[in-house]
Design a protein around this nucleic acid. Sequence first.
DNA 1: CCTTCATATGACATCGATGTCATGACACCG
DNA 2: CGGTGTCATGACATCGATGTCATATGAAGG
Lengths: 362, 362
Amino acid sequence: MSTIYDVARLAGVSPKTVSRVLNADGPVGEKTRDTVERAMRELGYVRSNAARMMRAQRSGIVGLITGAISTKNQLSTQQGLPDLYIVQGVQRALESSGMTVMIADTAGRKDRVPHLIDTFLSHRVEGLIYVAEYHQEVNLPELPDDTPLVLANCIDARGTASVVPDDRRLQADLVRRLIAAGHRRIAYLSLRPDMVAGKLRPQGYRDALAEAGLPYDTALLANVDFDQPETGPQLLWDSIDRMLRLDRPPTVLCCGNDQMAMMVYGILRSMGRKVPDEIGVAGFDNYRAIAETLYPPLTTVELPYNALGVRAGERLMQLISGESRDDQSPVLVAGPVHWRASVTEVRPENVVTFRTLREETK
Amino acid sequence: MSTIYDVARLAGVSPKTVSRVLNADGPVGEKTRDTVERAMRELGYVRSNAARMMRAQRSGIVGLITGAISTKNQLSTQQGLPDLYIVQGVQRALESSGMTVMIADTAGRKDRVPHLIDTFLSHRVEGLIYVAEYHQEVNLPELPDDTPLVLANCIDARGTASVVPDDRRLQADLVRRLIAAGHRRIAYLSLRPDMVAGKLRPQGYRDALAEAGLPYDTALLANVDFDQPETGPQLLWDSIDRMLRLDRPPTVLCCGNDQMAMMVYGILRSMGRKVPDEIGVAGFDNYRAIAETLYPPLTTVELPYNALGVRAGERLMQLISGESRDDQSPVLVAGPVHWRASVTEVRPENVVTFRTLREETK
DNA sequence: CCTTCATATGACATCGATGTCATGACACCG
DNA sequence: CGGTGTCATGACATCGATGTCATATGAAGG
């Protein structure tokens, strides 16, 4: 591969002049510039980043560590592919800053992280982003250098800069929308509470109920570790069965995520219950392969992982340029509710009618 | 960040000696080695790749171009996420060769590819892999240099080295298995025939029928562009409806992919047909989020994108090391059939019974 | 016409790691 | 004891781009 020396020789100028043409540095005569540019094209010259970066002491590279790529089993997981979309967002945010993103994969083994960090440091990355596959607390090894670090989809105890989803608010927004649609008996089937999302989302559910002055009825609650191969579906079945037998059964089942909602569809069908006429179902994630393809399409709330990545990228650029190193609080990201046919829109007047009916039949 | 000069000064030796310690090059006295190693630890020294690579004229970097990250809409697409798993495989294959993979994203715009290639060349990548999001023919700009290139999940007209899924064989394997389970009337709902997979898979279906001496009945065939928002589901419904009204209706519906199968579940339910007792459903992809969560779980065939990526990585390493530049034919990759509850295992004796029944009721 | 200054260009050093060659200190052999 | 070889180490050049400083050329101003 040719160098500026080759170009200089061919153009009959000094290497420095070629450099000036490349960087629009100092002044270059018009004719000279032409000659040089022609020579570069002829040789198919491409500037060597290594040499450039050695001189400039700036790599223009940002390192990104993730399990996005290798954590997954073949074609899927429980959660959708959050980290993937985060990575996409990061790329988008950084590409506009002229940075090259180097992605490394933990291959599902957290113990490889230090090694990956070393590789990145050897490439003299200007910043690092760690992307977690689901909302969680992590504990990364301290960075030896003062290399800026941003955590995406996770936080740590040291107060490292981070960007995380606003699970609580998202769930509250969805439940608010259900309430606005006239629903008053809303059940909540939550994920394992040992996950951050499994804790925050139920809180959001509760927030929305409280706001609307609705009672918080524990009979409408269930914790379901639904993706356990055997016990999961059974547990889900039992929970739903229990709720439907209630004196005042729920009119909507709010699920911990879209995949759980898909399983709930199957269960309700087996029970002979029609969605949404007899009971509504709502998800969480807007996992489109599921939400849009299910029949009827699923009402859910979107956690914009993409935007989360963009924010993380922007935050890193701030740190690199030395701005606002002070603000320690995590950036929270929320997203829109997608209203689809899996939940009926109950008009307030209808609600009254139902109530009246209920009173009458008593 | 410290350099070997810093380390050398601290250890009281020459930079070259430090280099020797780093690379286990020439002989180094035991005491000297200790001193140097202590100094490196103390300074938190990390070798600069830029300087190293400039001298060595070897970057140790492989470039990977994909739409894996940005092509996707939020959380999903039709096909699952093939390219993602391919990328994972590539990483796995190359990491064992000590290469760093630099991933760049087309952000869904093919016109950005030349720019990305330039960026990679400026990093002096030793090889390039292009990963397509679905099995297709592509036309990349010619690489100026003699940089090795491997196409993954796609081929081009120039005969560039490539690794692609063996769609035809995979579909044949699945249909063979259905036949082995006793099914004789197998319908095929195919994807758009303008996609490579939409052509090869039906061929595989036909291969398997021919092998078993079963008739190729066009009444059991339909092309369905199922993911068209409006017409798609309707078309699918009509096709299934038509087949079920046949004199001798199919006992299994073989779908172009798992997502189509999910939609077929919904349609069959609406038609009041029970899966798998009244009719079986088979998919393609083993898109686990769907195949395992559907009720009943979906019989499908796995296209091991992961392995495909590994093969692509290995192929590239061959090219880089100069081996077997000759073999032009694409590498084909196949995978296992996953037999699940969506198709009944019809014993040969039962088949006879059915036939008899049919004869009797006539 | 000479000074002054902007313009256009080049010589040279530099970034950090490492290949090449040289040198000094021993050890072993005849 | 001199010669030959091995071991341990360092001096120096080099990779390619670019920052610093110097120089040459011509134009404008007095």
